[in-house]
């Protein structure tokens, strides 16, 4: 590479030659720094505030829970349960986004209380992880029986 620079600038004055080389070395150093950040984290797993890894939005949504609720009617049929309606909560309030297992457990407890003694509420829930979705609750059992 150095030879190439020398050949490219051989017709130029000595001052220009050194400036060209200096610029090339600086270019390579800056480009190497740009590449080092993401390589360090994404390839070698080294996390540092000093290096930008360009993993945009990789942590957004972590922990959010996708949940659906059903309630058993007296005739034995399972029908979808609207948690907002059951709890008298706003659809754009805190109940909209369940962000943790504890929060889900609290919602289930409130639903069971609101449904009354002996209620049968089935909950299917999965939680966001870096690896995808993790099932944390199946509808195999009555959640109010826990």
């Amino acid at each position: 590479m150095t030879d190439i620079v020398s050949i490219r600038v051989s017709a130029e004055p000595a001052g220009r030659l050194s400036a060209g080389r200096l610029r090339l070395f600086a270019f390579i150093a800056i480009a190497a720094f740009m590449i080092a950040g993401p390589v360090a984290e994404q390839v070698f797993g080294v996390r540092s505030a000093w290096l930008r890894s360009w993993t945009m939005f990789s942590a957004i949504g972590m922990g959010v829970i996708d949940a659906s609720f059903e309630i058993r009617l007296p005739d034995g049929a399972l029908v979808p349960l609207d948690r907002f309606e059951m709890l008298g909560a706003s659809r754009n309030g805190r109940l909209k986004r369940i962000e943790s297992r504890d929060e889900l457990a609290s919602v289930i407890k409130r639903l069971c209380t609101a449904a009354g003694q002996g209620a049968d509420i089935r909950v299917r829930a999965r939680q966001a992880t870096r690896g995808g979705w993790q099932i944390i609750h199946t509808d195999a059992e009555n959640a109010c029986a826990d």
Binding site: I60, G61, V64, I65, D66, A67, I98, A128, G132
Partner: peptide
Amino acid sequence: ARIEQIFLWYYAGSDY
């Protein structure tokens, strides 16, 4: 999955 999670986080909440 990640797009779904981001969509739920910002838009849909816990209702898929």
